[in-house]
Amino acid sequence: MKIPLKIPLLVGLSCAALGSGCVNVKPWERSVLADYTMRPDRNPLADAFAEHTWFSREAASGGRGVGGGGCGCN
């Protein structure tokens, strides 16, 4: 019985193609990553909005660094 190799081959090639995107960035190559614009909290206003949306929709009040039960009641 002949086993078709198309699927494993396709999966293997996909893994190889995707795997090549995994790069180990060395500590001395992180100048762009260390840039201020890369910070997720660089805009306090946007951060506050995101926080508000998050706790309202996820019922996770205080879930980001503040003590709370996550009841979403405040």
Binding site: M1, I3, L5, I7, P8, V11, G12, C15
Partner: peptide, 15 residues
């Protein structure tokens, strides 16, 4: 079905 099962097994092993 056997061919399909073998193919799936082979894929899982490879992954």
């Amino acid at each position: 079905e056997n061919v399909m099962r073998n193919t799936v097994n082979q894929t899982i092993r490879l992954v």
